[in-house]
Simulated assay, not measured.
Amino acid sequence: MSQSAPPVTTRPVRMVFTTRAGGASSSPYDSFNLGDHVGDDPADVAANRARLADTVGLAPAEIVWMEQVHSNTVTVVDRPQSGPVETTDALVTTTPGLALAVLVADCVPVLLADHTAGVVAAAHAGRMGARNGIITRTVERMVELGATPAGIQVLLGPAASGRHYEVPAAMAADVEKHLPGSRTRTTQGTWGIDVRAGLIRQLMGLGVTAIEADPRCTIEDEDFFSYRREGTTGRQAGLVWLTGARR
């Protein structure tokens, strides 16, 4: 008696973070720079973005980029774009196969998904955006589109860690006031900000508990671009998209 093969399980959502390795860009953007606003050769950035799309099995036009401005603006998209979505720091979609991209070089890339409801989001949570509620507003927009806080899974990517993100005392106090749990001390004993810690506390307060965080620090880990470490540098990316599959 013959046996049939077990069914192939396809993940309903994919989340990806890049590093700085494996691209076409020259120093100081070496080498997998995905930012088109940092002074790199546009042809090299285009080649890197095409390589990214090919690696994850998408067409370049299926990746939606943002013109990030450290705001708390959230934009819903439902189709490919001719260029970056202007002046926004979070994207939300219910469209399968449409990948949402966030660029960072110390800020926290936040990927969110409720695969049961079919809603995903990508957010750029820098110090100012996080302070001003970009993640709260992203979760609220996802809920408006059918997601539930209990059904949302979150992945926080590599970012500046509190042990190295030194800021003046007044700035640390201000961010702590708006994003409780973010103020910390650096390894030097000075005031610092741990944006990821503040965001985790904020998300849990919103009822989102399925949270994972990559602990790597972009300031100390040279596998990543870091504005704080290098000044002129490239950008890595986080991507999230619905595959169309359902569990």
Rank of each mutant, 00 (worst) to 15 (best):
E144R: 01
G39V: 13
A150L: 04
P180Q: 10
R185W: 13
G198W: 12
E144H: 00
P168S: 09
R79H: 10
T18C: 08
T232K: 13
V110E: 06
T88P: 05
Q3R: 15
D214V: 00
M15E: 04
F32N: 00
R216M: 04
V77N: 05
L206K: 05
V45I: 15
S26H: 15
P215H: 07
L111N: 02
A210G: 02
D106K: 09
G35L: 08
L206N: 04
I135N: 00
S4Q: 13
S26R: 15
G238T: 06
G118W: 07
V139C: 03
A53Y: 01
I211T: 05
T88G: 14
L112H: 04
L179T: 08
S4H: 12
T184A: 14
M66I: 11
T138A: 03
S25W: 10
R228V: 10
S27Q: 15
I219Q: 05
C107Y: 10
T19K: 04
V154G: 05
R137F: 05
G198E: 10
M142H: 02
P96D: 10
R246C: 12
G162W: 11
R49N: 07
I211P: 01
A53V: 04
T186P: 07
R127Q: 13
V208R: 03
T218F: 08
T75F: 01
Q202L: 11
R246I: 14
M204N: 12
E212N: 07
F225P: 01
V45T: 11
A43G: 12
V167K: 06
V119I: 06
T19Q: 01
A172I: 13
V64K: 02
T95D: 01
V195M: 12
R228P: 04
G97F: 03
Y165G: 06
T19W: 07
G23N: 08
H178M: 12
A160G: 11
G146N: 02
D41V: 14
H178S: 15
R141I: 04
P149M: 00
L98N: 00
L239M: 01
N132T: 14
S27C: 13
Q81S: 10
R14D: 01
E166D: 12
L103G: 08
T55H: 07
I211F: 04
V119T: 06
R196D: 08
M15T: 07
P28I: 14
D41A: 15
G22C: 12
V77C: 10
P84D: 15
D214G: 03
E67H: 15
R247Q: 12
A169R: 05
F225E: 06
I63V: 09
G162I: 12
G126L: 09
G205H: 02
L34C: 12
R11L: 07
A43C: 05
S27N: 15
V195E: 09
L203Q: 03
L206P: 00
M128L: 14
T186V: 13
V120K: 02
E230T: 09
V120R: 01
